[in-house]
Structure formats: C-alpha cells, structure tokens
Design a binder for these strands. Sequence first.
DNA 1: TATTAGCACTCAACGAGATAGAGTGCTAAC
DNA 2: GTTAGCACTCTATCTCGTTGAGTGCTAATA
Lengths: 354, 354
Amino acid sequence: MDLNERKKKILHSIINEYIKSAEPIGSRHVAKNLDIGLSSATIRNEMADLEEMGYLEQPHTSAGRIPSDKGYRLYVDSLMNPHEMTVSDLEGLGNVIELQMGQIDKIIKRAAEVLSQMTNYTAVLTTPEMKRGAIKTVELVPIDASSALIILVTGEGVMKHKRVLLPAGADIEFVHNFSALLREKLSGLTLDEITAAKISEIRRAMQAHFELLFPVLDFIADIIDDVRAETEIYTSGATNMLAYPEYSDVRQAKEFLEFLGDKNSVVKMLQAESPESSAVSSGGITVRIGKENELDVMRKSSVITANYYVGDQVMGKVGIIGPTRMDYPRTIAKLQRVSALLNRILYEFYIDED
Amino acid sequence: MDLNERKKKILHSIINEYIKSAEPIGSRHVAKNLDIGLSSATIRNEMADLEEMGYLEQPHTSAGRIPSDKGYRLYVDSLMNPHEMTVSDLEGLGNVIELQMGQIDKIIKRAAEVLSQMTNYTAVLTTPEMKRGAIKTVELVPIDASSALIILVTGEGVMKHKRVLLPAGADIEFVHNFSALLREKLSGLTLDEITAAKISEIRRAMQAHFELLFPVLDFIADIIDDVRAETEIYTSGATNMLAYPEYSDVRQAKEFLEFLGDKNSVVKMLQAESPESSAVSSGGITVRIGKENELDVMRKSSVITANYYVGDQVMGKVGIIGPTRMDYPRTIAKLQRVSALLNRILYEFYIDED
DNA sequence: TATTAGCACTCAACGAGATAGAGTGCTAAC
DNA sequence: GTTAGCACTCTATCTCGTTGAGTGCTAATA
C-alpha cells in the first residue's frame, strides 16, 4: 500500500481540522466540509488505510480519527504549507523587543514574553552559555572601608558581580593597585582557561605584595565558577497551556508546570538531539513531536526549537512548547521571525559596539 | 443566642477536622471521633445554632457543615492553639538559608523556596523597596576603548549596572576622573533626593570640563528611575496549590496562576490593609481570609503576611497563600520562624558590616 | 431543663438500563 | 474505482431507582 497523493491530501486535511477543533475527525466531516470531491465511503476506505499505515489513530471504534505522532511528523516534514505572517502579526514586532535595550537578560526575557503572547503557547529561552567567552575586564570597586565589589565583564557584555569583605588594613589605593594587577592577569582569557591552577599561579606571582588580599582571589574563583555553570532559562506563558483541553486534567497540568520549573529538565529537553526521522527545516528549526521527547511529561506535547546566534556562534536556544496538535506552520513562522529578530538585536548590541 | 464555651469547643473541633479532610463534617462524626462527650443529637442542635450565627455553612441540606469565612476568622483570632514546631521542622532551618549568602536577592529567593516547601502552600516575598536607600557609591568602569559600565551601589547593598558608550576621544584617565567626580557628587544621597534639578546642577558643574558626557548623565538618571520603581517579587510553590481539591478545576487554577504572575496584583494584595475585624497576632502577622481579600481570584484562599526588617525599618513583606481551609496555627508558626530568621540574616548582612 | 433516642425526610452520589447519534466496515450496485 | 446503503459498535447522555449520610423535629428521659 503506498501513500499516494490522494491519501496525503486527506491526511493533510484531517490534521488541519484536528488542530483547530481538538475533536476526532470523521469521514463524513472530511467529505462535506473539505473540498476533496469524494464521498464519505471512499474517504472512509482511505482513512482505514492511513490508520493501517500508522498515520492516524482511533480513540475507540466508533469515533473519528486523530493524527498519530507519525502523522504529525509527516505533516511537519512534507505536508504543511509554510505560514505567511499577517500584517498585524508583523507590525510593531520590531519595537516590542527593541524598547527594552539595556541588558542581555532583559532582551531574552522580553523575547520569551513576546513569543508566548504571539503564539499562545509556552516559550522557553536559554541565556547564552559563557564557557567560551573571553574576559574583557575584571575590576575591584571599593564600596566602603570593609567591602568591595568584584565585577567581571565577558566579551558578550555579560556582567557578574559579587560583594566581598576586605581584610582590615586594605585601603583604597591598595585595592586599586590590586585591581589593576588582576585585570592584567585575567583579561583576554576565556572562562575555560581559568582553572584553579591558573588562580594559584596568579597567587604565587603576587605573593609579596598582596598577601592581604588572597581571600579575595578565592571569591574570584567562585564567581568564575558561577558564571561558567550558569545557563539561566526564561519561561513565559506557562499558563497558556491550561487553556487547551489536552491539559484539562489538573494532575497533568501540575506535572507539566513542575517540569517547567525544573531548570535542569528544561535545559536537557532543549538540548536533546533532534530526532533522526526529522528533516530540519530551513533556519535550523527542530521539531520534536509527542513521544519523540524522551520525557514522560512531554508525551502529549511538541517542542519546536531554534538556536540564536551572534555572528556565527550559537548563543542559546529558543523553544516553544504546545500540544502535539499545535499549529505547526504558524508557530514555526513566528519562531523564525523572533529568533531572526533576536539575532539582529544581539548583533547590534555586541558587534556594532566593538 | 450566645456563643458559649461549648459552642466554641464544637466549632474548634469542626474546623480542625475540616482543615484535615476538606470534607463537610457531620454531627455524628463530631460526636464519635472528637471527645466532646455529647450525643450527635445535641451536637446537631448546636451546629444548627452555629450555622444561624454565621460560623458554619451547609453546602446542601443533607450534607455536613463547613466553616464560613467568619468561622475561620474566629478560629484565627481566638480559638486555635499556637503551633509548636517539631524538632524536625526546626533542625537545619538555619543552615538552609544561610548557605546562600552572597546577595540579598538570593537570600529572599531562597527564603521563598524554603517557606513554600515547609508549608506546602505558595510563598510570596517582596524585595526591599529602594525609595529611601542612600547611594553608597557610583563608579564608572572602563570596558574597552568605546564603552564603560556605570555601577550604582545603594546602602542596602543592592547594585545596578548598565553599559554605556563613551564619546570618541575619551581615554581611561578621563573616565577615572569623571568617575571620581560622580562619586563625590552623588554618594550619600537618597534616591529621592536625586531630582531633575539635582541632575542639572551636576551637569552645570561639569559643563566646563566634560560637556561630552551629557549622555552618560542621562543613563544615570535612567538607572535611578529603574531602581526606584523596582519592587521585585519572588514566588515559590505555586504548583503546590494544584494538589488541593479546592483548585481541581483547571480554569480556577489558571486564574490563580495568572494572578501570581502579575506582579502588580500580587504587590497590591500583599500591601492591602489588614481587615478591621482582625486581631493582629504577635509578630505583626496579618491574616486575610477568603472574601476579606477584595480580589475575586482569592475568594477561596487565605493570605498570611508578615513584614521583615533590618533594625526597625520595614524592608518588605513575606506572604503565604493557601486555601481558606489552610492549617493556620502551623503555617503562622512557620512564617514567624522564617521571617525572624530573615531578619537575623539581613541584620548580619547589613549592619555588622558597617 | 437540658439531653438524648428515634424517626421521617432530604439530597447528592452512584449504578443500571435505555436511547440517540456519530462513525465505522462491509457488501453490492454503479 | 467509486459510492449508496445497511448493520454494527461504542460513547455520551438521560432517567430512574437505590443507598447512605446527614438533618430537623418530637417525644421520652435524667
């Protein structure tokens, strides 16, 4: 039995309808409302074939058919029509994000909000990974007699700071000199290059002069560890999902929301390999459908992910989570749109200033 | 009809039972399982009285009784026994929070997590309001030839930063001088004292030397506005609520979660006046029960709030949200415990270092 | 006089049929 | 190859009786 054009057309129509209604689709409905030009009996035969081939499923004997994960897969890979964004979708999109210039975190956060609002699904973004970023400058800023801030700026413009206690007897002059020395030793190194060994090397190098400030070095090692480990995630629109009948059961809703609250799981999900069967569409977009996600919580959901870049370096992931029945073409279009915008904004933010 | 001791005892028992079971309580149950020493018929009469007086309600004619908001109010104000924390509740509590020293935001966040985990309800904390904080130091740190970071530290140890572009021709020397000038002009002022007038005064003072740096001043004004406006909230354990039968309806759950996501509403709720009928218990704790909250979303929930302090200045609010049927004595005890701990930690953090 | 036993009554919850209707699969005719 | 027709299946929905928890009232009791 082969998947001829007619079968494809019927499958396509069924999926489109099911995405809208979330109700099983019957042969009669297909024959009447979609213009295929065949009787319900013929459609019925074709639907039986499609079920046998694994593209459709029947919740129970006398119900209509719903798409299987395999059906969605085919739909995403070769059936669906790319979505044209409407004028109202487009207008204002630029401004919405750009208003919020200032810090990279805010941009990312804002992008998540915009995306979830546009799609009515849940958006998840990861902040840039820092591992490969070079240190631009290190500064020790005195606050008062007994404390100072350590400030670390990486090439990506990300900043980390931590308040440290100064040992008694360290005056401002002294702190300034120490700060200059640190800058000299650490600037230009990538975070990966700064190991414990490197820190103790620095310690040895300054032995005579700054013995007093050795504890501060430990703080610096800490903060660098922090930055290195840190991949934050921003989630927006989690409650959007509760509006879909797929999540009308509170226990499942709870499970889902708790999953979203667990940073590790979410990061793992976003970074999972794309399924082999998937044709990655243009723009590096990956779609994982239903059980293609290993996680049990996600068996009724699909995730669409994209990378975002500065220049040609991957900075992080953008993901949209929705029911398997989600509106793929429209969502993919919007994801592409937003990630492209993000690329542009980040590019301007980082590169143009150098 | 007056509320004699016997009626109080019966009401107390009924509320205790209902808090545990979430099921309407019948006269037979009270007579059998709680040791009041009366027959079910007598209890029945008393319960009818209590209903007439407004302390109990009947979901339908042949069901048991459940407490009304008025009933809970009486319970909280004068019936309930203060909760003794168990040893296992206490042990480790100190460490749990103290591990995370470093930044005030992290402490607050951690406190929310601990509180929601201890109580199994939802915890909400507000970060300190900055309005009255004095500026401790302002610093301009060069990053590269064309940009620098402005760093602002307040008396509370909160730090804000922003990257700014330097005008062409500004060398490091120049940045340092300017930085020193800013520090001199702004240190010690409260944020409220930095008005537009003050800013233009600074501008005038500098005009002769550094007329190129107007844009930097604008950025400072921006940052100050930012900080002034900012009262962040931290929420933890939102999904805990989904486990209670009161929220088994997804639509209500959604409403509740969306309310929690709306910063303004939550702040408003936390800062609402305490109800007149309420006797504020020791430690400045306020309880708002069911419809005592104006917000419609909260009509089935209660909020318990406390302030936290540094010295004698109120820094922010700690709140716990649960079903009206929540375990008041236990929750109040834990809230007191955590806010006292928070006070201590913040005290050490701020005062001891000065 | 306060308490209790007893009884009739009410009402939600539950389960057993009965019914309707949506949808299927199969067969025979076109 | 397509379609009309029909028997069949299964869920959803309704009704209806039953059960049991709980009440309110009355009369007996301490």
